[in-house]
């Protein structure tokens, strides 16, 4: 499998009132095409910042990020970064972030509106995305009429409707109960296995790592190790030791 995401000595330093804060410290790693990859670690370990850097929402202080053959760390203009976010990646957040005044289908259509796709075609594409997450029947409802799990599935539909190559999920089950968490993870697995979408998921819930092909553990901004299913037990043990 070819590598779709490559990070080379990536660091991100924020300037705060109390001085510089190293959020990501000299991280080098890669994610393969079609892989279900997780980044785990405690709060403040830099995993969400990593996701933002890969997604082009933030720029690294140093290092190189190459996604789908394009060096995104060198993208400077708002226009080129926005195009990258619109075409290459899709985001799923812990808080769903649906626009409450728009119907479910209108929320899903948002990335397509930016692409300039005509209304009829984008409606078809949005319905297809909703069908992929099993929510076609909720298309004309408003987000507030749905449960948390359903809202997160709408957010996933919105993230994949533009057919991105990579899905970036930040604590996608963080706001859901166990049953809904499982539904969401099943949707991710289906998207990954049936549609070949590369998924990078940030989580601190170790129960979810069993869905993933590989898991990176971060600690204080640094990458500690990368685990495969064969070594997940070691990962769990290292976490338990920390706690």
């Amino acid at each position: 499998m070819s590598e779709i995401i490559i990070l080379e000595h990536v660091s991100k330093i924020y300037n705060s009132a109390s001085g510089p804060v190293i959020a990501v410290n000299d991280v080098s790693m890669s994610v393969r095409q079609g892989e279900f990859f997780a980044i785990v670690g405690p709060s403040g370990s830099g995993k969400t910042t990593m996701l933002h850097l890969i997604g082009g929402l933030d720029r690294p202080t140093s290092g190189k990020i190459i996604v789908a053959g394009r060096e995104i760390s060198s993208l400077r203009s708002d226009e080129s970064l926005s195009r990258y976010r619109n075409e290459i990646v899709g985001f799923v957040f812990q808080m769903f972030y649906l626009v409450p005044r728009l119907k479910v289908i209108e929320n899903v259509e948002l990335p397509l509106i930016k692409k300039g796709i005509p209304r009829d075609e984008r409606r078809k594409m949005a319905l297809e995305a909703l069908r992929m997450v099993g929510l076609e029947s909720a298309a004309l409802k408003y987000p507030t009429q749905l449960s948390g799990g359903e809202q997160q599935r709408v957010a996933i539909a919105r993230a994949i409707v533009g057919r991105p190559r990579i899905l970036l999920a930040d604590e996608p089950t963080g706001n859901l109960d166990a049953r809904n968490s499982q539904v969401i993870m099943d949707v991710f697995r289906k998207l990954n296995q049936e549609y070949g979408i590369t998924i990078v998921m940030v989580t601190h819930n170790l129960e979810l790592i069993w869905y993933c092909d590989r898991v990176a553990r971060m600690q204080s901004g640094s990458l500690v190790d990368i685990y495969t299913p064969d070594t997940y037990d070691q990962l769990i043990v290292s976490f338990v030791k920390k706690v």
Binding site: G55, D78, R83, R85, N86, F93, Y97, K114
Partner: peptide
């Protein structure tokens, strides 16, 4: 403000 963040995450530019 959050909606602005979402729109930008979905690929909308500052000009949009």
């Amino acid at each position: 403000t959050k909606e602005i963040g979402i729109l930008k995450a979905l690929g909308y530019t500052s000009l949009d």
